[in-house]
Simulated scan of single mutants.
Amino acid sequence: MENNLICEGCGVELQTINEKEIGYIPKSSLEKNNLLCKRCFQLRHYNKHETVALESDDFLDMVSSINTTDSLVVHLIDIFDVEGTLLKSLPRIVGANPILLVGNKVDLLPKSTNQRKLKHWLFSKAKEAGINVVDVYLISSSIGHQLDELAVEMEYRRQSKDIYVVGVTNVGKSTFINQFIKRSTGVKEAITTSYFPGTTLGFIKIPLDRDSSLIDTPGIMNRHQMAHYVSKTDLKVITPKKEIKPRNYQLNESQTLFFGGLARLDFVKGDKQTFVCYFANEVPIHRTKLENADSLYERQVGELLSPPDEVTLNELPPLVKNSYRISDEYTDIVFPGLGWVTILNGEVTVNAYAPKGVAVSIRKSFN
């Protein structure tokens, strides 16, 4: 297309030839002031999302060009899904550029969360992954928590260089950047935002001064997240929208907890104790006897045990068992993109079930 026109929503190069390819815009829309590809137009005005025909490697290859620049990198992660959003490949992507690690959606955590301890824990998690970060910030893009303090730090750290914002899909990058644009220019929703993974398709540059820009990058697909296995409707249910209320269950061994019908935790062996569940408040939790769990799931998945809805059920992989013998107190069983369960006393054997491809893990609790 002449003049390489760019979609103002997602950053992809616009084209008028093939309606089924990314970047399509009707010729009649080229005269408008705000140029949006068909996908972004439908997303912004009708909240209608279309799947993007780009593979994970395409996203990764594009973002990896950052390692040839001299810039500051802001790595945005989801506090509610650290394991699913912390990019283990970040050093290869960004090279020697300094990294600010920013934990988003901190407003979703219970107010009792020790944020100092959480920051220390994130430093440790980054170090374990081989990521050297210069500092850690805890923010909320949606309500603006700590954004002013982070803006000062970003300005200090960048030293007149470009800033690249990187992260996996659905981590809130565009909302994060929109907050900065709104504060500095008054422009609202300058970058397309959505619940759904994969909204930004190319680098979007927002000038900071004559020589440097704040740059939104494509989200990197992490197929181990629950978001890639559920319908649009279910994704809205499992994505927290306000502060999570911990739900406590006193369990005896041989009892099971279902988290909707998307995950399951069996208390196989151990003394009676409390299991603290951290999931979106809209996700129902159902307790049953272990001996009844399999038949209950077969009969009630999509009904009593929902989500999943019918759309998700048609695509959802089978639940796979992960067995753990946990000795330490305050250990979390993590279901990436869904939530986690804190085991307070330890000395237990549990089975954790999640859809095949979703990487269940255990960690030391940061609470």
Rank of each mutant, 00 (worst) to 15 (best):
P26D: 06
N4S: 15
N222I: 05
N351D: 06
D107G: 02
K27Q: 11
E50L: 09
F196W: 06
L338F: 01
E149I: 13
L316Q: 02
D81Q: 09
N222F: 07
E50A: 10
K245V: 14
Y164A: 03
S71K: 07
L313H: 10
E19M: 10
L87E: 12
V358C: 03
G337M: 04
K117A: 07
L251V: 04
A227C: 05
L87G: 13
N367D: 05
M1F: 14
N222K: 12
K20D: 14
R116G: 12
P284T: 07
S323P: 00
L72G: 10
I191F: 01
L109T: 06
G202D: 02
C37P: 09
L100R: 12
G198M: 07
G357L: 05
K205R: 09
P246A: 04
V268C: 04
Y353W: 08
Q15M: 08
V166I: 03
K32L: 13
V358G: 00
T217M: 01
L30M: 06
S89T: 14
L72W: 10
R92C: 03
D328G: 07
E243Q: 11
F275K: 14
L257T: 12
K236A: 07
P91H: 00
N114L: 10
L304H: 11
I285P: 05
K321M: 09
S124K: 13
K173F: 05
S89M: 03
V237I: 14
Q255W: 09
N33F: 11
S213Q: 05
P207W: 03
D211G: 13
G144M: 01
V320T: 08
R44P: 04
T331G: 01
V187K: 13
R325W: 04
G84A: 11
L109K: 11
N4A: 15
E50T: 12
M226K: 04
T233Y: 15
N322K: 02
S184Q: 03
F279H: 01
T16I: 11
L147P: 10
G357V: 02
Q179W: 04
P218C: 10
H145L: 14
V311P: 04
E291C: 10
V63L: 02
E19Y: 09
L344Y: 01
F279E: 08
Q42H: 13
N292Y: 10
I66V: 15
L54V: 14
E83I: 05
E19W: 13
N351G: 03
G11R: 01
N178C: 00
N132S: 11
E13F: 15
T69H: 08
H145G: 09
P318V: 13
P308M: 05
H120K: 13
T200G: 06
G270N: 08
P336A: 07
K32N: 06
G198I: 08
A359P: 02
D81I: 10
T288P: 11
A151M: 09
A126I: 00
